[in-house]
Amino acid sequence: MARPISPFPYKPKSYQNMREMLAFEIENTIRKNKLTASKIATKYPSVRDAHVKKILHGSGDELGIRMLFGIAEAIGLQAKLEISA
């Protein structure tokens, strides 16, 4: 008998928190500096207008972690991973 497949795969809470925090900081920086996708694309060519719109509408955490880190570095943010017990 096959194991049932969930339509909602498990994602660790710490991973989800990291994506949400990163998307939030990117959104703040984009709004503060009035950045557009074309300005960000000069340093990170994979970014599209739809990505920036998704971030500005509060859904940036739906983007992949690589995309978020790429955008963050392109706009001058540095992420620091801290692990504690």
Rank of each mutant, 00 (worst) to 15 (best):
A2K: 06
R3S: 08
R3L: 11
P4W: 13
P4N: 12
I5V: 14
I5D: 14
I5C: 12
I5S: 15
I5H: 13
S6K: 06
S6G: 08
S6D: 12
Y10F: 15
K11P: 04
K11R: 07
K11L: 13
K11I: 15
K13H: 09
S14P: 00
S14I: 01
S14Y: 02
S14G: 00
N17D: 11
N17M: 09
R19N: 14
E20R: 02
E20C: 02
E20L: 05
E20Q: 03
M21N: 04
M21G: 03
M21H: 05
M21P: 00
L22Q: 05
L22E: 07
A23R: 05
A23C: 09
E25L: 01
I26A: 05
I26S: 02
E27A: 15
E27H: 13
T29Q: 15
I30K: 14
R31D: 02
K32W: 04
K34H: 06
K34E: 07
K34P: 00
K34R: 07
L35V: 01
L35W: 12
T36K: 15
T36Y: 15
T36S: 15
T36G: 15
A37R: 03
S38G: 04
I40G: 10
I40T: 07
A41R: 14
A41P: 13
T42K: 11
K43E: 11
K43Q: 11
K43S: 12
Y44F: 15
P45I: 05
P45D: 09
D49Y: 06
D49A: 11
D49K: 08
A50W: 01
H51E: 02
V52A: 07
V52P: 00
V52F: 01
V52G: 02
V52H: 00
K54L: 13
I55R: 01
L56G: 10
H57V: 08
H57L: 13
G58L: 08
S59P: 00
S59T: 04
S59L: 07
D61H: 05
L63Y: 02
L63P: 00
M67V: 15
L68C: 09
F69D: 01
G70R: 06
G70C: 13
G70N: 08
I71K: 06
I71L: 06
A72I: 04
A74P: 02
A74N: 09
I75S: 12
I75P: 00
G76F: 14
G76K: 14
L77V: 01
Q78S: 07
A79N: 03
K80Y: 12
K80G: 06
E82F: 05
S84L: 11
S84E: 09
A85G: 04
A85M: 08
A85R: 07
